[in-house]
Design a protein around this nucleic acid. Sequence first.
DNA 1: CCTACCGATCGGTAGG
DNA 2: CCTACCGATCGGTAGG
Lengths: 199, 199
Amino acid sequence: MSPRRSAIAAKATRQAVIEETVSRASLAGLESVSIGGLADGLGMSKAGVIGPFGSKEALQLAALERAIEIFLGEVWEPAADAAPGLDRLRAVTDAWLDYLGRDVLPGGCFLTQAACEFDGRPGRVKEAVERALTRWQWLLEAEAQTAVSAGELPRVDPGQVAFELGAIAQGVNQARQLRGDELAVQRGRRAVLRALYLD
Amino acid sequence: MSPRRSAIAAKATRQAVIEETVSRASLAGLESVSIGGLADGLGMSKAGVIGPFGSKEALQLAALERAIEIFLGEVWEPAADAAPGLDRLRAVTDAWLDYLGRDVLPGGCFLTQAACEFDGRPGRVKEAVERALTRWQWLLEAEAQTAVSAGELPRVDPGQVAFELGAIAQGVNQARQLRGDELAVQRGRRAVLRALYLD
DNA sequence: CCTACCGATCGGTAGG
DNA sequence: CCTACCGATCGGTAGG
């Protein structure tokens, strides 16, 4: 008589599987997260883990969606209220470097990891990663365009600014994750100042 | 009575396995290259593939070593004869961006791929990747230091210059491999000019 | 460098 | 969401 409770429980289970997948994937990559490993870690059966998704690819897509949500929550939302243009670009890059420095996920930025892992594999996951990073690039580009139009940046190609900011984030992530480089965020901040013509 | 011929043949086999591994790993990652897959691709048995190495980890280390050799041959050697300092830094970055634009390996830069893949996994492969990239960073840093001392660069932190150049290379590699962005090398060249204070 | 084989694990499903 | 199971593939080895 109460389908509610089980529907809520099912949703909570699904969410727990997704969170565990996102966390593990940031360390070892989405492809290396096995259904059996998740089942062990969550104290569930393999069927219980994969059932709500139907296939590993569907779970990967759900995990990617969640990772994008986390990224936007950490990097975009704190900056969304700033004035469009250079102010917001500074707010976004501040939040971005904070995010990279805090190790929100144990293995660093999920999206960078996923981009690396899937760039050479065809399929729906690769397409979804590509879409997410392309949209993020567009967002940065639009912000840079606004800044140029307002005279807050020199008359540069906004795509160039967006490219440089993305590159800096990758550089920071690699230096931190691979070498445990504690200076990386600091160097990232300096590089951002140059990319935004603020030094 | 002729151990030579078989020793030479054994070496050639070993080399063929390594080349195939490097090529496949640039696309899908070192961990995803399976011994069975290599055996199929090379028309050999699994035992024939893994025998010369003893373990998958040993094969991965050999492939990494070969990838470093390729990278240095493509990026450092063409620049090695330039005058130390800014000239050589320009020669290196020119060769580096050429290398990224030519898709020397089918999946782009092996070292960037390996750094991403292993940064969250402990072990000898991770340590070897870390060592290789740290040494490369040192080399760039030393070159930048020479340029600063010669007054060819402003009095900046040479480590900052090396960081920015590495970040640019990662940005170019991701844009090309994930999005097939044909503008990436061009944007990389512009970013290098800024990183070297040449614009 | 081959055939033949090992135990472990993979993603996924049937049936409850 | 569980148990019990499927065929395929994993890294690796014995023996030649």
